[in-house]
Design a binder for these strands. Structure first.
Lengths: 141, 141
DNA sequence: TATAAATTTGTATTAAATATAAAGTTGTAA
DNA sequence: TTACAACTTTATATTTAATACAAATTTATA
């Protein structure tokens, strides 16, 4: 049996010093191919069909590892569950409070990159900037 | 038996069209007097001593009501629980990933108020802007 | 090949949040 | 004042996200 995955996923893990196990590559690949800000459960459910022995604990461990190593972003925007984003480039998010969907938005040019800087004596490693409201689709429907 | 609370708490509820029941005023007062970004459990535990019959469900309902009516902010910055902030004026937060404490920070002048505006067709009602990292105290200790 | 280290898995547990219905309170109109 | 409706609070049960943990498996290395 073989697992298909993009070279991008494999390279991403290598560049972030994460050992590319089959499970890790599959999960990284899923994040890169699915820009839907999936939850742990989303990833688990969608990968289970092709990897029947996959454990949810592994998905938890792996996604946590990815966010610690900077290979993915952990979004604490939804009040009920954590979401993950394979796109680590500077951008912002919009959570629709009606349908729950998370959209990508361009980051305002005024919001500067300050990772590694310190503010009021605190050492900053992550910036989170997002909006909540009602999305275009829900407004029209 | 009587409950002490600040006039500010009572007035806040009135101005946000929230009926000022004893429980609601007590919880609003707690938020105003304790700028510690408490969780539901923090509020419940601290108020239980003076209000022994207080139910945790009431704390959940009340804090959700406050955030819906704009009387308090619901912070989804911690990955494990939701926190609340009685200070609704524009400011940002810093979460220490080591000790878990949430600090208030001044909002950068570049981050403008865009509530009520729309971005990419989505109607925005909340802006969240915060940092994560290691706080001054943890760096020194 | 043998052994150690790292990774994955499944089960059990913890704890945040919600659902629900009964009980209690408040407001209003006869 | 009383009766009724609407609203609020409470307690219990349930759901579900996340963690703990140890056994099993895989990978690396001596």
């Amino acid at each position: 049996m073989s697992f298909k995955y993009t070279k991008e996923a494999f390279e991403r893990l290598k560049s972030k010093n994460i050992k590319p196990s089959i499970q890790r590559v599959a999960i990284m690949d899923y994040l890169i191919m699915n820009r839907t800000h999936p939850s742990v459960d989303d990833v688990y459910k969608d990968l289970s069909s092709s990897m029947p022995t996959l454990s949810k604990t592994t998905v938890y461990n792996t996604l946590k590892l990815f966010s610690e190593k900077g290979a993915a972003l952990m979004l604490t925007i939804d009040e009920n569950r954590v979401n993950f984003d394979g796109d680590t480039s500077p951008h912002t998010h919009f959570l629709c409070k009606r349908c729950g969907k998370i959209y990508d938005l361009q980051i305002p040019t005024v919001v500067k990159e300050v990772i590694g800087m310190s503010v009021a004596g605190h050492q900053i490693s992550e910036i989170h900037y997002y909006y909540k409201g009602v999305c275009k689709t829900c407004l029209e429907g």
